[in-house]
Amino acid sequence: MNATDSATKTGPILTITDLERSYGRGDRARPALRGVSLTVRPGEWVAVVGPSGCGKSTLLHLVGGLDTPDAGSIRIGGDEVTTLSAGRRALLRRRTVGFVFQNYNLVPHLNVAANVELGLRVAGVGRRAAKERAAEVLAAVDLTDLAHALPATLSGGQQQRVAIARAVATRPALVLADEPTGALDTTASRRVVELLREEHRRGQTLIMVTHDYAVAAAADRVIFLRDGRIIDERRPAGHSLAGAHEASTDAADTRATGTDAAADDLGDEAAGARSARGDNDLNDLLGLGSW
């Protein structure tokens, strides 16, 4: 299943029901997720925000089949993920999920092109086709000139763009981005967000975990997580629940401008208010409308 296929389906692309996950055992067990339920439609960009340790990355890993929940259900395009074996989940990930990590996680001894090709080769794409597709996505992220460079010679932003290229190269149903701008400076962060927005415009379904509310404002929908539970769900101003896909396409430029302005205005203020303020303060900061 890829983004194009999912966009033509009417049902949700991702359905999470009563998801639970704890770490540790017995008295030392620490619940990371408690009864999380969530639905994502094709072409939607969902941002998951919350304080450190609230379960954001755990949620992403469970969705991507990198980990297994203690209870609950995760269905991607109708396929139940939680009951699959590790091998089956790996097979599902090949064409269904693309990952973007905070620390890029590029293979250090492979050059840029080889890193992008890696995902395609794992997915079973032939060598020539993989090379062509890798060149195509590298052009899209404006890194053609660095195709033969090793990751250690690139800046953080460049490495993250390579990671995004690798993630979207297989045209997965879902792109899961875990703090994609977490290790980047402001300029690089903007560049990465812009890239994600371009993919979203092409119909890519995105689920992004971030602690940066300015970055979250670029998404169609923002999920607030705290202590392993979804405490709120908002849309950035100008978006409604219905027709989120159309709205995101029509209002892309406006939203992009608005987000940039919000990021410029909020900057460190948003960072400082992240976990200290209540929901209303957050709404004020982000300019989000209420339900």
Partner: peptide, 12 residues
């Protein structure tokens, strides 16, 4: 790196 290949879909 091994985790990355696993994340990309390499089976155990």
């Amino acid at each position: 790196d091994i985790g990355v290949t696993g994340a990309l879909g390499a089976t155990p």
